[in-house]
Deep mutational scan, measured.
Amino acid sequence: HHGSGALAALHADGPHAGLPVTRSDARVLIFNDWEERKRSEPWLRLDMSDKAIFRRYPHLR
């Protein structure tokens, strides 16, 4: 199991509170979210491209 239990660094406060600090933090969040959702949506594709990251977390651009 590759990303399970990996912890992402999140901004503690300010405008980005609760959001990932780096792209690799964002990838951890996206992976964990996908892993949760694919139980009920097995067709869901995992997209951890930069484009997917920016779409979801525009502050990382």
Rank of each mutant, 00 (worst) to 15 (best):
F54Q: 04
F31M: 09
S24Q: 10
M48D: 06
H11V: 05
V28D: 02
P15V: 09
W34S: 01
A6L: 13
L44W: 04
D13V: 10
W43D: 15
D47Y: 04
R45H: 11
A8I: 07
W34P: 00
I53K: 09
A9R: 10
E35I: 15
G14F: 03
L44S: 08
R23F: 13
D50H: 07
H11R: 05
L46A: 02
H16Y: 15
L10V: 09
S4M: 13
L60F: 05
W43N: 09
G14H: 04
T22K: 09
R27P: 02
L19K: 07
R55F: 12
S49K: 00
E36I: 14
R55Y: 09
A17P: 03
D33S: 04
T22M: 04
G18P: 04
M48Y: 07
R56G: 02
R27V: 06
V28N: 05
H59A: 01
M48E: 03
I30N: 00
T22Q: 06
V28T: 07
A52Q: 07
G3A: 14
E35T: 14
L7N: 08
R37V: 02
E35W: 15
F54G: 06
D47S: 05
G5R: 15
L46R: 00
F54P: 00
S49F: 02
H16S: 07
A52P: 00
F54A: 08
E36D: 12
L46S: 00
L44R: 05
L29F: 04
P58V: 03
L7A: 09
G14M: 03
V21M: 10
S4Y: 07
A9M: 14
G14Y: 04
A26W: 03
G5Q: 15
H11N: 08
D33C: 10
A12S: 13
Y57R: 00
L19N: 07
P42R: 07
R55I: 13
D25I: 02
A6M: 10
R23S: 11
R55K: 11
R61S: 12
G18M: 10
A26S: 02
A17G: 04
L44F: 10
D50Y: 07
P20H: 02
H59R: 00
K38C: 15
A6H: 12
V28W: 15
S40F: 11
I30V: 06
F31P: 00
P20F: 15
T22I: 05
P42Y: 05
A6G: 11
R61W: 15
R45K: 12
H1M: 10
D47E: 05
R39E: 10
D25S: 06
R23K: 15
S24H: 14
H1Q: 12
A6V: 10
P20S: 01
E36T: 10
R61H: 11
L46E: 02
E35K: 15
S24Y: 12
G14A: 04
G5I: 12
E41C: 14
P42K: 04
H16N: 13
